[in-house]
Design a binder for these strands. Sequence first.
DNA 1: GCGACAG
DNA 2: ATCTTGTCGC
Length: 222
Amino acid sequence: MRPIYQHPWNVSLSDAVAIQRRLACHIEWDNRFSQIDTIAGVDVCIRNDKLHAAVVVLKFPVLQCVETALAEQPATFPYRPGLLAFREGPVILKALKKLKRLPDITIFDGHGRAHPYQIGIACHLGLLLNRPTIGCAKKRLWGQFEEPGNQKGQYSPITDKKTIIGAALRTRTNVKPVFVSSGHRVNLAASMQLVLDCCRGYRLPETIRQAHHLSVTSFEIS
DNA sequence: GCGACAG
DNA sequence: ATCTTGTCGC
């Protein structure tokens, strides 16, 4: 089956918003995955207007690396809060296409549902890839939340007009929380559990940490 | 007009 | 995200 959703990337800011609003109603918030054999982390770094994307696929739940992929591309679309997918999406898809096998779950360094139109980069790319995804950001973009308790595992909801759109989750005791939200086909509870399952180190899931390291390393070499 | 604002 | 020195907390 060919990709169902596709759209141009070289668009104006207003067109980008229009595309988001059109795609948003197709995002699925319920779990639609079964066995999880692999889970991946994706991240992008920018040097001299060049984007470097890295994806690290880990066997789950042992978190052993089974495959990685890199891609680079000039940065064209500007950074605008809410439109991150249009800036980083293309180079990320380029890296993901190099994988022998797409991961069962993919975690992004950015939001999912906790976005003004409920279509953060994790939702957007999950829909285009037709795969389950999770958003895991370092800072809030949309919605209100209270600081969660200081112990690892404690969390508080991120809400938008009484609707829970994500959670501020403490992945390490006494360390700033991460902001987790559903991407595509993974509900909030499962997203939070998986993010915690992927934490073996600092405060981001091991998957994203490794991808970040890899993306930084790649531009240092290039 | 002012404040907020993923990466 | 990137740039970039000293500095606060455990």
